[in-house]
């Protein structure tokens, strides 16, 4: 196998990059190291920006064959590719031609198509919450019953009518939120942080290879 294809290369890069980020957090290493760390962050941004083209190519590779072969629902792919091209052209940073982020067509599409679509998708979560709550709030077990009771009390705390009927709902709701809920969340956070540290150790030492090509094999 060619040396540059060896799995050790990305592992070594991972370890070096991690140490460059970790060490200045704990130690004062001087301006030169801090500058190097800042440069490293810039590299990361440049690489990330370069990866944008990967996404664009991936989208076109998926949708153009679908349009050409008239696969099911190819019409939607046409709309996507058309919008992709329009946004790309009008968003190009060429001020001399009136293009860029402040171009009127770009602004119109962004403000009147993309933003409302995103807001719509976000707002339909309310309906998903209703259907999920219906399933979760069936007292089939002790845990589900506790969830049902706690959820109902918090609903009464947050809905204006709850505290209007009995102010005690506010106190109970606050206690549920600040004591059992907060302590559980903190326990999960501590466990998660420990898990991340150990995962980091495994990744830096090359034991965690699942995220590499074929598990590093």
């Amino acid at each position: 196998m060619a040396w540059y294809k060896r799995v050790e290369i990305p592992i070594i890069i991972t370890a070096i990059c991690a140490l460059i980020q970790i060490l200045p957090y704990y130690f004062t290493l001087g301006a030169s190291v801090e500058d190097f760390q800042a440069t490293f962050v810039n590299w990361q941004m440049v690489v990330g920006t370069g990866a944008t083209f990967v996404g664009a190519i991936a989208i076109l590779q998926l949708h153009i064959p679908r349009i050409m072969k008239r696969r099911p629902q190819w019409e939607y792919s046409t709309a996507l590719v058309a919008m992709f091209v329009i946004m790309l052209i009008f968003g190009l940073p060429i001020r001399e031609l009136g293009l860029g982020l402040d171009n009127s067509v770009f602004e119109f599409l962004y403000g009147n198509v993309l933003t409302p679509l995103s807001s719509t998708m976000y707002s339909i979560i309310a309906f998903f919450i209703a259907s999920a709550a219906y399933r979760a709030f069936r007292a089939r077990s002790l845990e589900a019953t506790i969830l049902l009771v706690a959820g109902s009390l918090l609903l009464l705390k947050n809905a204006p009518i709850g505290t209007a009927v009995w102010p005690g709902f506010g106190t109970i709701g606050d206690w549920l939120f600040n004591v059992p809920n907060m302590s559980t969340q903190r326990a999960i956070l501590i466990g998660g942080a420990l898990g991340a540290i150990v995962l980091g150790v495994r990744a830096m030492t090359g034991y965690e290879r699942g995220y590499l090509r074929g598990g590093g094999e």
Binding site: R135, A136, I188, G191, G192, G195, L199, E208, G210, Y211
Partner: peptide
């Protein structure tokens, strides 16, 4: 995830998944 999926890995369990 707890209410809508059949099994949920909580916090640290996902980091242990690879191992």
């Amino acid at each position: 995830f707890v209410v809508a999926t059949d099994y949920t890995l909580i916090g640290e369990e996902i980091y242990a998944a690879g191992a």
